[in-house]
Amino acid sequence: MVLLHSTEGMSGAIRGELHKMMELTYYRQRRDINATPPPPLSELKNSWPYLFCLKGIFLHFHLLTGITLLQRVMESIEGKGKRILRFFQERPTNREAHAVLSKYQEGNSLVLCILQLLMAHFKERTESLLIEADVAATAADMERNGLPDSPALIFQGESMTPSKWMLSVESEVVFGPCSEAFVEGLAALFATYYNLNLAYQDEAACTLEFIQRGIVGINPETGSKVAGKRDKKMKVMNPHVCTLLRKLMDFECHLKKNNNN
């Protein structure tokens, strides 16, 4: 894979044999990622370059969890996304969520709107996970301006209609600019936490756990990926996330009841 990348770059990812190569070397990938102390990002990129392209990101996540992530996220957004939006439209939970809704129009990115609504609802700092950038900005521009240490999704274009996106990890752009659908950016962002064995940062922990449980459907009875809690007894679920999920279930039942009537 290193040789393939040296000759063909990231375009080598389209080769059919990449899946087999990723599968055969999966144990070594996990060994390197989980080494103590953790390896520098530059070392992982040199050793496993295709861990940082869309195909490689999703392949590794599937080998790790058994979940076809992009399909799962797309189906979940298609099935639940509009209901989540309608819930906030009919029952805005705070002024921050209302402000997000005031900018949303038909035809805008539903995925981006949902992410912003979740962060507004949980009163989390948007810039800890989502960074707005000029459509002409390059990866080097973003790195010069400073990026968070935790994984972040950079969206370029209008505030609710991104035309491109980038993925950053450890203050470095590792993928993009990319013109693929923004839902792929969300899936790649989420996969990065699992692939690289990273904890959710406190500033976006509720939003990320909601994505994990409410959109991806990973629901461990114990354990948490929130930073700073590894040595403590884990809660079954973040209570704020649990409350919102319960309210959404009640809202869905209410909609079904009205439709039946």
Rank of each mutant, 00 (worst) to 15 (best):
L189W: 07
Q156N: 06
T161G: 09
K257I: 12
N258R: 14
A205Y: 05
V174G: 11
P220E: 08
R246L: 11
L153K: 00
V169R: 13
M160N: 07
N238T: 11
L186S: 08
L244Y: 05
E172G: 11
P239V: 01
G217P: 03
G176A: 14
V174K: 07
T222W: 15
K256A: 10
E172W: 09
T161M: 04
A227C: 07
E203R: 15
S171C: 09
G176D: 08
E209K: 00
L244M: 04
L189D: 06
M234R: 06
A199D: 13
E184S: 14
K233A: 11
S224I: 00
N197D: 14
E203F: 04
C242I: 01
K229I: 01
K164G: 03
A205I: 02
N219K: 11
Y193D: 02
E172V: 13
P239G: 06
S179P: 14
K232T: 10
L208G: 05
P151G: 03
C206F: 06
A205T: 07
L245R: 03
L167V: 02
K257V: 12
Y194S: 04
L248R: 04
E143L: 04
K247A: 10
P239Q: 08
V169Y: 11
H254D: 11
K225F: 07
N260Q: 13
N195H: 05
A187S: 14
M249G: 12
C242V: 03
G146T: 11
E172R: 14
H240Y: 15
K164T: 06
A181P: 04
K256N: 10
K257A: 14
A205S: 13
E170W: 09
A204C: 13
G185N: 02
I215C: 09
P151Q: 00
D202H: 13
F175K: 12
L248H: 02
S171R: 11
N259M: 13
Y194F: 05
N260Y: 10
I211H: 06
A181T: 00
C206A: 09
A199Q: 13
P148Q: 04
L189G: 07
E209Q: 09
K232G: 06
R144M: 06
V174H: 10
R213K: 08
C242N: 01
L198R: 13
K233P: 06
A188W: 09
D250M: 10
A187K: 12
T192E: 00
P220Y: 12
K233L: 13
P148G: 03
V236E: 15
Q201P: 14
K164N: 08
N195M: 04
F210T: 00
G228T: 01
Y194P: 01
D202F: 11
L255E: 15
V183H: 09
P162D: 00
G217D: 04
